[in-house]
Design a binder for these strands. Structure first.
Length: 580
RNA sequence: GCGGGCGUAGCUCAGUGGUAGAGCGCCACCUUGCCAAGGUGGAUGUCGUGAGUUCGAAUCUCAUCGCCCGCUCCA
């Protein structure tokens, strides 16, 4: 991908930059362009006071790279990173299993996050809450009822509209059609269709018939045969009380339906007790905030971190593991004095960006959105989205949200228990505010793979070209740290020494022994799964070429393909320094 | 959930009503003294699943599951 130079601009701190590499669009897809363009334009408005003309930077740069994504998905399956859940039964939509290498990768990410956020900080404690969640908790948080918007559907355009956002219709005449038939196929329908034609419209009967025919044409099949409106129609003044009409075409919308956004679990002897699978790990933290505080002698500001599974009934899982029904979150709820909330939100953003750098996602590939007023959740005073340039588009990895005292407030009220904090020093009593850096674990794993994936063209002495597929994980994320190979598998001494080296390294890191095929091929196999180092035991190791190189091995580097000679005795220390 | 496209070996795909295929990968043996594809042999499929039409279905029809694109949604 080519990058168009663009000035980064500081918006609130000198050290935080908005990365504005404007993404452009596939010229072939105009419809898509316009949506994306408007979305991007909105982002520019959101991020800048004085904004540059986005259109200047939109050209000639593909925002998506489906071919690259296909290769990544294929590699993931072929080498055992990620499989579709229940694949042999046809697969379960929106669910994925991590294979051997994927599990290592994900574990490395979670372990590193835990180490950095919990173990190496004095002010953050860990917890691990239950997945099954009481309905009461989620009623208080607003997940039951509150966030599930009733939606209506337009039978003509199939558009979905939020019932509470449909504007009132102006007075007119409501036509109800009672059915139609197709003269050639003989197909008929008695489905009714209702449309409101506003009073100011001329020739209402014709307008109503035209739109009804459009509806029945879609229903009966798109053949060219004329359709007839059977049974005529009825007319009454509209709009009727309590009914909603599509503002664009006047069509009567379907009854509002609630969308089930959470997954339920039934249990108890007769299965009539219900609980929800948590839609986020945050709620158990809020509910246990007081217990953690009381049992650990901590003072504000402090945080509680949790990593674990959450579940959402995604309408439309998509983009490989990016949007799944079951996913893992890495969340921190950082409790603080109300005066410190905004400052800490900025500090956490910076902290989290540092983290992404440490796991191998460069700052240039991250986009930070400062979500403007009106687009944030109503309780949030500040929200940053950290987005990554996936091959399928720029998508969110993490949100850093200043949630004020909303969460503790609703649980205090819902549970009827005081969650007020008493500051010994200032003698002040208050409900703590919360800053929440909430990261998607599976998304980050996907970002790690996407970022690491590379195809390198090598040219040998004869000028022959060869493509090397390599995953350039930073060593601390790599599923396998070291490959161990005998130069010749028939040489018993080489094999024995390899096994000895394996025993030395195994307690400290993942290693992989391989003696299959030519040595170069083994190197390439490890490149493809991102193993940063390979150790080869050869004839020098055995001391056959004079004693000088005895007990040394070749260490080969994944990225440069260069080699160096190291003594076996120093191997463990040398590797530990580089893989942690 | 709606509309369009698609589903054949581990992967990428060819095969449009008449014996299930190719390349790569994989396994075994040989060869190989440090960057893949040299030799010999081998395994692999209920053609996504189920029903229907047909003497006969990977191929046609319907349903279903899944994937991709677009809408919609994303606390």
């Amino acid at each position: 991908m080519r990058d168009i130079p663009f000035p980064a601009r500081s918006i609130y701190h000198d050290h935080v930059f908005f990365h504005l590499a404007p993404r452009s669009l596939r010229a072939a897809d105009k419809k898509r362009s316009s949506t994306l363009q408007s979305r991007l334009a909105a982002r520019y408005r959101a991020c800048f006071h004085a904004r540059p003309d986005p259109s200047q930077h939109m050209a000639n740069k593909d925002v998506t790279d489906p071919a690259r994504m296909e290769k990544i998905v294929s590699l993931c399956k072929r080498r055992g990173f990620i499989f579709q859940a229940g694949e042999i039964y046809g697969g379960l939509n929106g669910c994925w299993d991590y294979g051997p290498l994927g599990a290592e990768l994900k574990r490395n990410l979670k372990d590193y996050w835990w180490r950095k956020t919990v173990q190496e900080r004095d002010d953050v404690l860990g917890m691990d809450g239950a997945i099954l969640t009481m309905e009461q908790v989620l009623i208080s948080s607003g997940h039951v009822g509150g966030f599930a918007d009733p939606m209506c559907e337009c039978p003509l355009t199939k558009q979905r509209l939020r019932a509470d956002q449909v504007p009132a219709s102006s007075p007119g005449v409501e036509y109800t059609f009672l059915g139609a038939s197709d003269q050639t196929t003989g197909k008929t329908t008695d489905k009714t269709f209702t449309v409101l034609i506003p009073d100011e419209k001329q020739d209402k009967d014709r307008s109503a018939q035209k739109i009804a025919l459009q509806y029945y044409r879609d229903l009966l099949g798109k053949g060219s045969a004329p359709k007839t409106l059977d049974n005529g129609w009825t007319v009454q003044p509209g709009p009727r009380e309590g009914e909603l009409y599509n503002p664009e075409n006047g069509v009567l919308l379907s009854e509002p339906r609630m969308f089930e956004l959470m997954l339920k679990a039934n249990f108890g002897a007769t299965g009539d007790q219900i609980a929800y699978l948590r839609p986020e790990t945050a709620q158990s933290i809020f509910c246990q905030y007081k217990n953690v505080l009381d049992s650990n002698r901590v003072k504000l500001p402090f945080g509680i971190a949790q990593c674990g599974k959450s579940f959402r009934n995604e309408i439309n899982p998509r983009n490989f593991t990016f949007r799944s029904r079951e996913f893992e979150q890495m969340e921190i709820e950082y409790f603080c004095h109300p005066d410190d909330g905004l400052r800490l939100t900025d500090e956490w953003l910076e902290e989290r960006l540092k983290f992404y750098g440490e796991i191998g996602i460069p700052r240039e590939k991250l986009h930070i959105l400062d979500i403007p007023d009106g687009e944030r959740a109503f309780y949030s005073q500040k929200t940053y989205d950290i987005e990554y340039e996936f091959p399928f588009g720029i998508q969110e990895l993490e949100g850093v949200a200043y949630r004020t005292d909303y969460d503790l407030g609703v649980h205090e009220k819902g549970a009827g228990k005081s969650l007020v904090y008493f500051d010994e020093e200032t003698k002040e009593k208050f409900l703590p505010h919360v800053v929440e850096p909430s990261a998607g674990c599976d998304r980050t794993v996907l970002a790690l793979i996407c970022e690491a994936f590379d195809e390198e063209t090598l040219t040998d002495e004869k000028g022959k070209e060869d493509i090397r597929t390599v995953l350039r994980f930073v060593p601390r994320m790599a599923p396998i740290k070291v490959g161990i190979f005998p130069l010749l598998k028939k040489n018993e001494d080489q094999v024995r020494i390899c096994r000895e080296i394996q025993k030395i390294l195994q307690p400290w890191m993942t290693v992989f022994y391989d003696d299959g095929g030519a040595l170069g091929r083994r190197y390439r196999r490890q490149d493809e799964v991102g193993t940063p180092f390979c150790v080869t035991v050869d004839f020098e190791t055995l001391g056959e070429q004079g004693g000088e190189l005895k007990n040394t091995v070749t260490v080969r580097h994944r990225d440069s393909m260069e080699q160096e000679r190291l003594p076996i005795s120093g191997l463990l220390a040398w590797l530990l320094e580089r893989v942690r």
